[in-house]
């Protein structure tokens, strides 16, 4: 069962990375980042459950980690979407093809 959950998590992570790499709308890129963070959370919970099933001490450590990942994801979404709004106000676009000022 651990491998099943890890496979799902790996697939979600791969989807997230593919989204970050292929999409050009910065909002959709943020959504793909949320997919990646959820895949990480899934791994934490799966290993927490596995650790509990083999009788390890303090089996909820992975879930506590997942709570903190969730906090960071919420903060990242708030600041990132604030950036998107500021960017849209100044440049009038949310396509990363048009926002290449810092590209070499």
């Amino acid at each position: 069962m651990l491998t099943t959950v890890l496979t799902i998590s790996g697939l979600m992570f791969a989807l997230g990375v593919a989204g970050v790499l292929t999409r050009r709308n910065i909002i959709v890129i943020f959504m793909a980042i949320e997919l990646i963070l959820n895949a990480a959370n899934l791994n934490f919970v799966a290993f927490s459950r596995y650790w509990a099933s083999i009788g390890g001490i303090s089996p909820h450590t992975g879930e506590v980690f997942a709570v903190f990942v969730m906090v960071v994801a919420a903060a990242e979404a708030a600041v990132g979407l604030g950036l998107v709004i500021a960017l849209y106000r100044n440049r009038g676009t949310v396509s990363v093809d048009d926002i290449d000022l810092l590209k070499w």
């Binding site: 959950v5 949320e34 459950r49 709570v67 919420a74 979404a77 708030a78 979407l81």
Partner: peptide, 29 residues
């Protein structure tokens, strides 16, 4: 997987908070 607290927090924080923020920004932009 037995992480009921995280399941509830996921629905409240992500679906109820972060995704509403996303939809609002899509509406603005």
């Amino acid at each position: 997987l037995g992480a009921e607290f995280l399941a509830g927090a996921q629905v409240l924080v992500y679906v109820g908070g972060v995704m509403v923020l996303f939809v609002f920004v899509i509406m603005v932009v």
